[in-house]
């Protein structure tokens, strides 16, 4: 594994500035990743290997992820970047507790991950992650009620409405998911996830099925929503898009394929900046080189 913390010239933690904030004063300024890091790591992944059983009798093992070690800092957005089939989604599923690991350990706040939990909410790429029989608001409220079953219904409603408003779906609050566009569905899923205030949010290429314009808009909105949370949510975000990784991630973990290993972990000084920003462009070029070397 190449650690490019020092190798990359422009590494420095940057305080986050919401780019499209209409009233920045009204929003709490989130802690910078560096400050968050002082609060400790939320996730510790050590020497993790993940095998899939395939073939007749499922006797044959295929290694999807090999010896991956990474820590996720509290309140940071870590992007896992790699080509298709490199095991990045597999790693995220294991972190979510949906897949068992073959060896190594995954710990969240010191406790081993053994099954899915509301402390690690996942946003899937699939548009069908919303409950079709609930409206937008009801979907978000469902998540809140699951998270805090004894919560006062009015408070649950308030939390759900705030998140729906943050993702810009107030006008669609009473619509059923089948009447929403792909982008709106993903916004609703993101609102539901943030509303449950998980310890870590796992996002598996949530914008992968969107068109380019909507994708950029959603990236922007994710940064805005993240920055407007009262307590910054830790996010692990999987993508194969270099620009998306640079725009979203405080750190970018580059993975190689066959089997998936960590190629490099890169600090990102250009998070939330346009791709034309020199730092962002430099980092994107650097990440592309890393991916090309792998290819």
């Amino acid at each position: 594994m190449v650690n490019t913390h020092d190798a990359f010239m422009n590494v420095r933690p940057m305080p986050l500035q919401p780019r499209t904030a209409k009233d920045p004063a009204a929003r709490p300024v989130p802690a910078s990743p560096a400050a968050s890091a002082q609060a400790g790591n939320v996730v510790e992944i050590e020497d993790v290997c993940i095998d899939y059983s395939v073939g007749p009798g499922r006797r044959q093992k295929i290694r999807a992820v090999e010896n991956v070690s990474i820590s996720v800092r509290r309140g940071e957005k870590l992007v896992i970047l790699g080509p298709s089939g490199c095991g990045k989604s597999t790693l995220l599923m294991a972190l979510g507790g949906f897949l068992p690991i073959s060896s190594g350990s995954i710990k969240v706040n010191g406790a081993s991950v053994s099954k899915p939990s509301m402390e690690r909410i996942m946003v899937f790429q699939d548009f069908q992650q919303l409950l079709p029989w609930f409206s937008v608001l009801e979907n978000v409220k469902w998540g809140v009620r699951k998270r805090w079953p004894k919560l006062d219904p009015q408070e649950a409603d308030r939390i759900a409405r705030r998140q729906v408003e943050l993702v810009g779906l107030s006008r669609q609050a009473d619509q059923y998911p089948n009447t929403l566009s792909g982008g709106q569905k993903q916004r609703c899923a993101i609102a539901r996830s943030f509303a449950a205030a998980p310890e870590i949010l796992l996002m598996d290429e949530p914008f992968g099925a969107l068109d380019a314009i909507n994708r950029e808009r959603m990236q922007q909105e994710l940064n805005n929503i993240w920055s407007q949370q009262e307590v910054p949510t830790t996010i692990a975000f999987v993508t194969h898009d270099v620009n998306e990784a640079v725009f979203l991630g405080h750190r970018v973990m580059v993975m190689t394929s066959g089997p998936g290993r960590v190629r490099a972990v890169v600090d990102n000084p250009a998070v939330d900046r346009s791709s034309e920003d020199p730092d962002a462009a430099n980092l994107a070029m650097h990440l592309r080189e890393l991916l090309k070397e792998e290819a």
């Binding site: 979510g96 099954k115 899915p116 939990s117 509301m118 690690r120 996942m122 899937f124 998540g143 699951k146």
Partner: peptide, 8 residues
Amino acid sequence: RLGRNYEL
């Protein structure tokens, strides 16, 4: 998976 995630 959503149901599992919300610990149903």
